[in-house]
Design a protein around this nucleic acid. Sequence first.
DNA 1: TAACAGACTTAGCAGATTTGAC
DNA 2: GTCAAATCTGCTAAGTCTGTTA
Length: 740
Amino acid sequence: MSEDQIDGGSRFNDSHKHKEKYKDKEHKHKDHKKEKEREKSKHCNSDHKDSSDKKHRDKEKEKMKHKDGSADKYKDKHKEKIKPLDVKVKKEKENGFASPQVKSEPEDNFYHSPKNEKSLKRERDVDNDSEFKPKKIKIENDKKVKKRKPDEEPKKTKNKREVADGKKKAKKEPEEKWKWWEEERYTDGVKWKFLEHNGPVFAPPYEPLPSNVKFSYDGKHMKLRPEAEEVATFFAKMLDHEYTTKDIFRKNFFKDWRKEMSPEEKGKLTDLKKCDFNEMSVYFKAQSEARKAKTKDQKLKIKEENERLLQEYGFCIMDNHRERIANFRIEPPGLFRGRGDHPKMGMLKRRTKPRDIIINCSKDSKHPEPPPGTKWKEVRHDNKVTWLVSWTENIQGSIKYIMLNPSSRIKGEKDWQKYETARRLKKCVDRIRTQYREDWKSKEMRIRQRAVALYFIDKLALRAGNEKEEGETADTVGCCSLRVEHIKLYPENDGQEFVVEFDFLGKDSIRYYNKVPVEKRVFKNLQLFMENKETDDDLFDRLNTSVLNKHLQELMDGLTAKVFRTYNASITLQQQLKQLTSADENDTAKILSYNRANRAVAILCNHQRALPKTFEKSMQNLQAKIDAKKDQLSDAKRELKSSKADAKVRRDEKSKRSVEAKKKALQRIEEQLMKLEVQATDREENKQIALGTSKLNYLDPRISVAWCKKWSIPVEKIYNKTQREKFAWAIDMAEDDYEF
DNA sequence: TAACAGACTTAGCAGATTTGAC
DNA sequence: GTCAAATCTGCTAAGTCTGTTA
């Protein structure tokens, strides 16, 4: 993505008014330290939320601008009917940054004191019942619980949760969905009391190639031992991929492949260039085609077998509920496909065996059996963690887990809690902003660096940027790990003052490119940080994520760098929805507005995707459809006109009916044309932006649900089945007036 | 306080499945 | 019914953050 992205700077414009207020604020903060102590004892979550929230919302008009110049070709065609995204968004370019208009109540909430997230939880009693034995699975929803309002503080209910009071005698689908959000939660880090599952599903064993599929070396057929042949097939399957042309990939692959060869094979196979995997590749392609060409019955059988596996291994009993497991299959062996310039790409990901597996379940559950003749590495009973199975992978030496599906209680509660933390940030973000602006003037370099980094995290939604071990992963950075080479400073650029140009690779080696005007003090600080440094030196040499997060924790309990991303994403969605949705639009246009609001967030968070391979072609097809529909529309108009003229002359019922019919037909065509045009606009604006990531991970679902309810849009229009399952709690809770 | 391990969330891609036009 | 495009889903890499240890 390029500079077309976002005018992030507009969110933080510094008006004269702001400065005046800011000075006033400085004065009030003279006795800052004493106040800090006092404020520390207060909680951001205090009661005056409604009035201050309202004020805050009025003030906070963070704006984003979508400058998708690339869309012109298609947009131009539709611009008469469909407002391009920029139109509305541009209107409020100024007044972006809420914090310069500092609230004049310094005594409230400045520093959030540790009144733990736990206070937000309804406590689930954790008595000393480690020997606790469930007897049966609870029939879902059999317990009537008083419905709690969306933002009501979870109360400690009198009744203990009937935790796992039954064992899994009847593993049947719940009749109704279990509303875990209406029950109390565990405290003290306990994640469950009863956990039973059937263990993982292993990758099928290697099936040697048929004898007619041959591997050749230096032009001669060569039969490989199954161990070496299997690794060769991994390479053959990727032959069409760009990976196999990369030097590092080839080097790593060959090195690891040789480890699987017999001494004899090793002696012969010394040059990858002389290896011919083509027959193998052709064979696998044919297999893939054969799979696709299977008869209905054959496909049905496969489906049934998958369903059987899912039913057997895809669910666990956690406490008294049958919960879906996210990834019950062990990752099959293959070649490691790192993203970007990964130094380990092509290495052999070895087969995970039962002896590598740690099983986690409760003591009193029926432990999963390892495959015959094998043993688990370990069976443990740790109810302070959420995973069911783990193993250590051989590429990075990191631990992999089997965990529950996002629709599960354990994931849902955490997700809900995440948004509650972001909502708490909303209550003290003005103060935090005031503080870091103050810190730009600090005498201490480390404080200035911390303040400038935090400004970027807040303003540009950058990730924290942990340190990484050199040579172990692709060279990517986040905020704290930015290097001098990643930014350029322009005292003036395109008529704007103090412009910073960011250009670096972030998570997944996705390029972050943005040119943003910043405040003078930030600019001067950056100049200072860069003084006497080489290009590969750290920009923030006195800062790392742990220092930053420690500081944030002091400002608000539970606050870390990533909460800013959640907060800014959600607040942006809410604001954009308010601005973009008009009551007089039809549902199609409203959904376009929703997608645009979602898109604004995706742009902010830099969620990109590769341009779909068939994009240009599909766009041409769509344009052809639009043109055809326009022709149809002209015809319909002409027909209506002549029909009207006819009716004028004849003045009979039949011709009147004919006019009505023509009118209806015309209307239908107009609607169809509009839908097509909306589709074209949406697709064009979306071609390189991934909406799913923000929708799934950053946007408080209650905002979307409330929007749907407010405008009577079926929630199915914005969330598919999986998403509705994940956000069941929000769909149930949020009313049309929900405010993030 | 730095290094490391561990647990968990966030991320894009690719193949599978569904949808819709003809 | 066929085909192409859209959408969904699974997969697993790559982050963040916390807690422990030396």
